[in-house]
Design a protein around this nucleic acid. Sequence first.
DNA 1: AATGAATGAGCATTCATTCAT
DNA 2: CATGAATGAATGCTCATTCAT
Lengths: 220, 220, 220, 220
Amino acid sequence: MTPPSDTNASATEAAPRRRRKEARPQELMAAALALFVEHGFAATRLDDVAARAGVSKGTLYLYFDSKEALFEAVIREGIVPALKEAGARVAAYQGSASALLEELLKAWWALIGEGPLGGIPKLMISEARNFPSVAEYYYQNVIVPGRRLLALTLERGMAAGEFRGVDVDTAIDVVIAPLLMLAIWRYSMGPCCPSDASYDTERYLRTHLDIALDGLRCRG
Amino acid sequence: MTPPSDTNASATEAAPRRRRKEARPQELMAAALALFVEHGFAATRLDDVAARAGVSKGTLYLYFDSKEALFEAVIREGIVPALKEAGARVAAYQGSASALLEELLKAWWALIGEGPLGGIPKLMISEARNFPSVAEYYYQNVIVPGRRLLALTLERGMAAGEFRGVDVDTAIDVVIAPLLMLAIWRYSMGPCCPSDASYDTERYLRTHLDIALDGLRCRG
Amino acid sequence: MTPPSDTNASATEAAPRRRRKEARPQELMAAALALFVEHGFAATRLDDVAARAGVSKGTLYLYFDSKEALFEAVIREGIVPALKEAGARVAAYQGSASALLEELLKAWWALIGEGPLGGIPKLMISEARNFPSVAEYYYQNVIVPGRRLLALTLERGMAAGEFRGVDVDTAIDVVIAPLLMLAIWRYSMGPCCPSDASYDTERYLRTHLDIALDGLRCRG
Amino acid sequence: MTPPSDTNASATEAAPRRRRKEARPQELMAAALALFVEHGFAATRLDDVAARAGVSKGTLYLYFDSKEALFEAVIREGIVPALKEAGARVAAYQGSASALLEELLKAWWALIGEGPLGGIPKLMISEARNFPSVAEYYYQNVIVPGRRLLALTLERGMAAGEFRGVDVDTAIDVVIAPLLMLAIWRYSMGPCCPSDASYDTERYLRTHLDIALDGLRCRG
DNA sequence: AATGAATGAGCATTCATTCAT
DNA sequence: CATGAATGAATGCTCATTCAT
């Protein structure tokens, strides 16, 4: 599991016996994320988290003070880094607002929707009331910035006469809610239902954008 | 809550027991729904459910075999009755597909979104993986019929040249996802976030329909 | 459930509505005995006792103060009456000690071993430590008198030169233990084991007496 | 209970945890046996079992899946090992059948009757109906083999003309029932009754054998 | 007298957390 | 660092007992 010979890397880490101790917290958080998303916070056993990360239960407490601290770390470390990347794009972007919007939603899907982070919205929705402070953090650091990106894009389009004038907050929902629901579905009902195995995300995204952009387009 | 006029009222009023047994199951399910939605299934104590329904913990077991049975009852009894009503409307409706769609979404919001049943989508999303059989039931008896209503409406509109031809399943998501997210929000992040107290559901619905219907409209 | 019209019976019992209230305690004790013997005191539910007696659980408390009081009644009322009968026989008996002994054991088996009272030894053995006062009562009023009957018989036989001189207490065990074990077996292991369906109690009793009396006989 | 000579004893001695985990299951089963025998299965609290074994209630579940599993272990682990030993003796024995029978009964008493295992017959009798599968196991693995040993002995004696011909199954009961009752008594009525403190097991055994062997002896 | 809905103390079981090794 | 045995508070569930009807 460890890359065998990082030729000169051994200078920095002298002890070859302790295996990737550096990576432990990440492995634990990944395991916790998967199980929290699948079963919810309360129904997830730390035994299972530790087992999934390949360590013993006691080890978990070397890195996290409590189950709740682990939950907070999962949320904080999980999503914020992913968001920074997207921010840069909007500022630098040169094309039409429509194209940028499409770009943003596709990026969101690629970065979040499809990967393991896609479970975070479901998790946050499920547990917000049990962890108000985490919810507030998530709101301020994920939802608000995320919506701001979309708001800027929409406003740019309106200013350019590309989009017609509508309530921006609602419009944001119209474009993002279907994607959110899709991500949530993947981690909730999806695995329990007779899968329309034929599901084609690519096509779904295109159709959704088709309708939404058409609904926003400014005519005449 | 006590029968209004106990002619001579007996002063003491100390009759805390032996009340409307008929209503018990409903009271218990209402209490359970509220707490399951707020905290999730695993994190909800039956003590609290019983207390909220104004009975003792043991009483709960006179009506439900187990915590899980209570959960199932909450889902089954909660949503199916509400769905039947909506079904009749579509068949009987005479106006344009747009108007029917608007009618349906407003009815959904009035019947489900706003009332206590509005928490069920959040609950079902949170617990689906822990109760696959209930999830399947919910899918077959709520989601499938609900989507069918919308599908019929959209197809009627397309046949009449009112809507343009798009993938129906995706279009359903586009119109329903924002409302679902709104309902979910009310029972998850909503209470934890600095409320834009100014929130106007009426206006939200209108704007959403405006964009979505415009995006579906058939032009020339 | 009430016999409709016992035409002339109403003379003796004025209230036709209250059904055999006289017999209630006995019915309840019989039901309790059967279930206590089968499952033990702690594992027996009063619901089941009441159901078996055909009344509601509350009714039980009209006749017995508590589960423990019911247990005491089951023991006290159950066995003592049966013992009085046997006492008379020995005093009146005229034949040989061997014949009397045989008579006693057969009477014991007929009165106790075979009928529903046969479970009492098993029950008393199982619960003695949990109900020391009942155990003491049972010892003084059942075991001591019972053994005294056997002791008198054996001593009569020794005095007459019919039996050889042995320790009377031990000899009592030798003659009674196999019968006791047989009764106990019927209410414990018996129903769980591949039954030697061919079991012939009659023959068992004869063989046992054959060996025991032969072992006690005085020779030369 | 603590190992006698901890050479330097470390003064503080404050190590109540992390002790011989190897011995735990045995300690727990011994504690459970004692309490199950005393109070019965249902009336025994796992708290008390754990306390008697010097551990907390949770620890019990590290070694046994449930209260019922503990019960099964108590029966299975308790008696079978003790039975193997006795089996060897009969095969190897060289003397008369009478002497072997005496030897067997004395061995039974020494191995089982007197020690803590002596409570198992009472326990099994009390709980057989509640645990039919355990009862069947006990029957097949304890009672059947045990009786077979006695049957072989009796048949050997008959073949040698030492015993007269009687029904073997009944004869087995005649010789074993008094001992069984004695063992049962020790764990049931015994502690509740005014003890004939003078009780002499040695003498009891001798008298019993005296009568029983005399009853089986073949004359002329 | 009889009922059965309601109660609440009691117990089996689970699991986050600790700590000696 | 890492372990996993041990803990004990928490919680689902049961059932003897009560009491309004």
